[in-house]
Each structure stands twice: as structure tokens, then as C-alpha cells.
Amino acid sequence: MFTVGNTIFLILITVLCVSPMIHLLAVSLSTNVYVIAGQVSFWPRGFTTAAYQHLAVQTEFFRALWISVQRVVLGTSINMIMVVLVAYPLSKEVSVFRARTVFAWIFAFTMFFGGGLIPMFFVIQRTGIMGTIWALVLPGAISVWHAVMLLNFFRGVPKELEEAAHIDGAGHMITLVKVFLPLSLPALATILLFTTVGHWNSWFDGMIFMRSPADFPLSTYLAMLVMQADTAARVLLTPEEIMALAEVDDRTIRIAQIFLGALPIMMVYPFLQRYFIKGIVVGSVKG
């Protein structure tokens, strides 16, 4: 009884969550005029693959995709290393690492305060990373939120294992790599997922710190498409704007790009899922 109800409920949730993707897919496979007129819900009207054919020969989309891949790989690597290196010392008791609480607050403090865009722009400019991929990676390299999460997982690692490693003559670095990391795989996989998704999705920094759309990562490029289509903020129309207004917004192509843009990152989750398998930690401790 419970199992049946539970299954039905979860299927409902699944449908609810998957429906926007199906809607986008249907739109991307429809003729534009039906899309503009709001006639497409979950099944294409005027079926056509024209949007995808158009995209296949377009270089910008794939260029932006490549930049995104670089950003994710570079950014995620740095973030993961940093988060581990921060979480480990801070997970220690005060008796082991006396300054831990001070440092914990130094890190936590940055979660609440920022100086805003202008000083950040200043710093990026003065550190010479403006317009480079580092401007997308370094400012957010320390994710305090994730470090706090990981340090709480580290605390769950049995003390005996750590002590055993120390008795074997292992230093902190070795203990971290050989004992803590293997036991924290579900947590690490979670953080890896969040970081990857975070880098993939963030678009605003790309707009501000890159010089031209040719350097935009995919999410920034897609955000630009959405914004260019959004003409609602105008008051006085210049001749060029009047010309542009005549273009019927090609929403089919736009949505096709948004749909394609979400696909690669959706693949990451099933890949990481194996690390969420129940019982890894407990099993290792017992072993």
C-alpha cells in the first residue's frame, strides 16, 4: 500500500519535473509561427528539424560550448582542490588546531559581504586576468558553503582510522588522501556535481569580465540570446531598432540552443550517481 502510493507520488513528481524539458523539445521541433502564437505545448506543431539543421552549421554555439567545457574542467578542478584543502584543517577539533574557529569565521564572513561589482571589476583588472578564462574561475575558487559541508562530513570519519594512519607514520596530507577522501566519496561527488553545475550555469561573470561574445561560455551566450530577444525595456526607438523589430523573433532556434545547452550537463548527474550508492562509508569503516 505504502509502496504503491509512494511510487505513484514519485512518478507524479517526475512528470512535473521533466515536463518543461519536453515542452522545450517540442518547441524546438515546431514551426516558428506556431511557437510565437503560443500554440505548442508538449507536441510539436508543424514538425521540422530546421532549427537543428541551422545550428549544425553554426560555429558560435560550438565555440561557446568548448569555452564552457574548458571553464568547467579548470574551474571545477581548482574548486575541488581548494574545498578539500580548506575543509580538512577546519574539520579538526580546537584542541588539535587551535586557530580553526578564527579561520572558520574568516572564511564564513565572505558568505555575507561583498563589495559589489565595481571593486570586483577593479581587482580583476589590476590582477591582469580581465578577459581571460581565469576571470571566470579565480574569483569563485573558494566555495565556503561547500567547504562547510565537506568539513561536516570529514567529522563523521571515525577517529580510529585517522589515528591508525598516524601510527603508521602518515602525515596529514597522506591521511587526507588515503583515509578521508575515500570515505567521503558521496560528499565529494555531491560537491563535484554542484561545482560543475555552478560553473556551467553561471552567465553573469562572462558578460562582465569577457570582452566580446566570441569569448563567452555557453550559458552567457544563451543568456545573450534571451536578452537580445527581449525588447521590452525600450522607450524611444532608433531607426536600427525599428528595423530589428521587423524580424520575427526566431524562438525555435533560440529554444533549440537552450535545449542543447542543457543536455551535456544533464549527463553529469547519472555519471556521478554511482557514488551516491548507499553504504559506501559504512562498508569501508567495517572493512
Partner: peptide
């Protein structure tokens, strides 16, 4: 696994969409 994966899906779409 399928439920977990699909529940994550809407997060990949921006609010503009």
C-alpha cells in the same frame, strides 16, 4: 535513479526560460 535525475532537471533551466 530515474526519479533523482529528473528531479534535478528544472534546475538546469534559467528563470528567463
Amino acid at each position: 535513479r530515474m526519479v533523482q535525475t529528473t528531479i534535478f532537471l528544472p534546475f538546469f533551466l534559467s528563470w528567463a526560460v
